Amino acid sequence: MPTHPATLPIDDLLAQCSATTTRRSGPGGQHRNKVETAVILTHAPTGISAEANERRSQDANRQEALARLRVRLAIEIRTPANEPTELWKQRTAGGRIVVSSTHDDFAPLLAEALNHLAAMDFETSAAADQLGVSPTQLVNLVRKSPAAFTRLNAERENRGLRPLK
């Protein structure tokens, strides 16, 4: 089974990425305008990239770009859905999905949820049954990422299903 890139350990994912630094305008004064603190990470195997430039620190922007890249990979890339992973089982104890959208586990969980939704033709009830959670819990996880929720509704609309609210 191919490993989803959003589930890779951080060092392994970074090894597959190229990083570019640049300057961006905006608040931050002379430091921001003179120093290349903006970071763009591009995942070489897929060509998917993410950028961060809000902070004055290049390291902080690299961490934010990495988090954004992992979420974009989770949304864009589909791999076969098998049994729920150990991470999924740990995070769904009692049928509730417990994770913040800013936690390192969010992107792997989102990727797994979207893989199962895709395998079930974006029928939330069928995917939720397969994952051992309620359809509401599954949709709420996807809703934590507006881009993922928009993608879910677009896929449902392509299949003639009603959009989720």
Rank of each mutant, 00 (worst) to 15 (best):
R23Y: 08
R24I: 15
R24Q: 15
R24P: 14
R24L: 15
S25D: 09
S25E: 12
G26R: 11
G26V: 12
G26A: 12
P27L: 03
G28T: 07
G28F: 06
G29M: 04
Q30G: 10
Q30S: 13
Q30K: 14
Q30Y: 05
Q30L: 11
H31R: 14
R32W: 02
R32L: 01
N33P: 08
K34C: 08
K34T: 14
V35T: 14
V35A: 07
V35F: 12
E36K: 15
E36T: 14
T37Y: 09
A38P: 04
V39D: 00
V39E: 00
I40Q: 04
I40K: 06
I40P: 00
I40V: 12
I40C: 06
L41I: 07
L41H: 07
T42S: 15
T42R: 15
H43I: 08
H43D: 05
H43Y: 12
A44K: 14
P45S: 09
P45W: 06
P45G: 11
T46G: 08
T46N: 09
G47D: 11
I48H: 05
S49L: 13
S49K: 14
S49V: 10
A50Y: 01
A50N: 04
A50D: 07
A50W: 02
E51T: 08
E51G: 02
E51R: 05
E51H: 05
A52P: 05
E54Q: 14
E54A: 13
R55G: 08
R56A: 10
S57V: 08
S57E: 09
Q58L: 13
Q58E: 15
Q58F: 10
D59T: 03
A60L: 06
N61R: 04
R62I: 00
R62V: 00
R62Y: 01
R62K: 08
R62W: 01
Q63M: 04
Q63C: 00
Q63I: 03
E64A: 02
A65C: 02
L66T: 06
L66N: 03
A67G: 12
A67E: 12
R68P: 03
R68Q: 08
L69S: 07
L69C: 04
L69G: 01
R70E: 03
R70W: 00
R70G: 00
R70D: 02
R70L: 01
V71T: 11
V71C: 03
V71A: 02
V71S: 01
V71R: 03
R72S: 04
R72V: 06
R72P: 04
L73R: 10
L73H: 09
L73T: 04
A74Q: 02
A74W: 01
A74G: 07
A74I: 00
I75S: 00
I75V: 10
I75R: 02
I75G: 00
E76N: 12
E76W: 05
I77V: 15
R78K: 14
R78G: 11
R78Y: 11
R78L: 09
T79R: 15
P80V: 06
P80G: 05
A81Q: 05
A81D: 04
A81F: 08
N82C: 08
N82R: 10
N82E: 13
E83Y: 05
E83Q: 12
P84W: 01
P84A: 04
P84M: 02
T85Q: 10
T85E: 10
E86M: 13
L87T: 07
Q90T: 15
R91E: 02
T92A: 07
T92M: 03
A93H: 15
G94K: 11
G94E: 14
G94I: 12
G95C: 06
